[in-house]
């Protein structure tokens, strides 16, 4: 199964798909590095870095804060998803399915309805601003993080860890030497997914957050309808770069783990 076994129409179709996906990305790079592209000019105007200067002078702090916030949300979601997945595996199938449904509900409910509905409840509890936004980010990330952790346990089971404990290993050595090498990659995938969900939240921050909770997606919003394509593209590029950086760190760690001869978990 390789490119040589594909027919010509299939190859052309694949190229067409790649072009359709790349076209918006090409526009991103072009408009990021070229200030203007007049309606009657065939080629873009002179190159400029003014968009980047604006970004670093005005919103770099917000971008870093937003990324750090999403990393924390993802970590907290992973921390509550791991014991939940382990617990659910030990339950009867019928009970497990019922509880799984509860955990998948945030994936089905519209963020607009949940944010509007829970706002007053949070206000009555005195939960406002960052705390409320943090909880809702965790809520929306939970089904994705949980499902990845759960599928990881369902695929590889917990026999290795149980065997280590039965052979006399204490909790922490069993955790660090047996548990982590097996599940680390699954956890990293789940962590990255949680990060993505939180990183791309817009409505929750827009509706429930205070001025301290302005995140990267929010600073992008007015740029869409604004006429400055250069700044809009630079901000989007930086958004993509920061997200990719987190992805890169996760993949880099994976390779390191594999080199150490971890386990089949890295596959």
């Amino acid at each position: 199964m390789n490119r040589r076994s594909m027919s010509l129409p299939e190859k052309l179709l694949l190229l067409l798909f790649a072009a359709a996906l790349l076209l918006p990305l090409i526009s991103l790079f072009l408009f990021s590095f070229f200030g203007s592209w007049g309606k009657n000019s065939l080629l873009p105007g002179s190159p400029t870095l003014s968009g980047f200067r604006t970004f670093f002078a005005r919103d770099f702090g917000t971008a870093i804060r937003s990324t750090a916030f999403s990393l924390l949300v993802s970590l907290a979601t992973l921390i509550i998803s791991v014991p939940a997945a382990r617990a659910l595996l030990s339950l009867r199938a019928s009970t497990r399915h019922r509880l799984e449904t509860v955990l998948y509900l945030p994936m089905l409910l519209p963020p607009v309805s949940v944010s509007m509905g829970i706002h007053k409840v949070f206000l009555r509890m005195g939960l406002t601003g960052t705390g409320a936004v943090f909880l809702l980010h965790m809520y929306f990330a939970l089904p994705y993080v949980f499902s990845l952790v759960f599928s990881c346990y369902a695929s590889w089971g917990m026999e290795h860890e149980t065997a280590a404990r039965n052979l006399g290993a204490r909790f922490f050595p069993a955790f660090f030497r047996v548990h982590l090498p097996i599940y680390a990659q699954g956890y990293k995938n789940a962590f990255f997914m949680g990060f993505l969900i939180s990183y791309s939240q817009y409505f929750v921050n827009f509706y429930l957050g205070s001025w301290r909770d302005v995140n990267f997606a929010m600073i992008l919003a007015p740029l869409i309808s604004g006429s400055n394509r250069n700044i809009a593209s630079v901000y989007t590029l930086m958004y993509l770069l920061l997200g990719s950086l987190v992805l890169l760190v996760c993949s880099f760690e994976r390779k390191k783990g594999q080199k150490r001869g971890g386990t089949h978990a890295g596959t």
Partner: peptide, 12 residues
Amino acid sequence: LSYMAAAVLIYN
């Protein structure tokens, strides 16, 4: 990409 960032790309 988030929907917001993707919206910028579609617009551009």
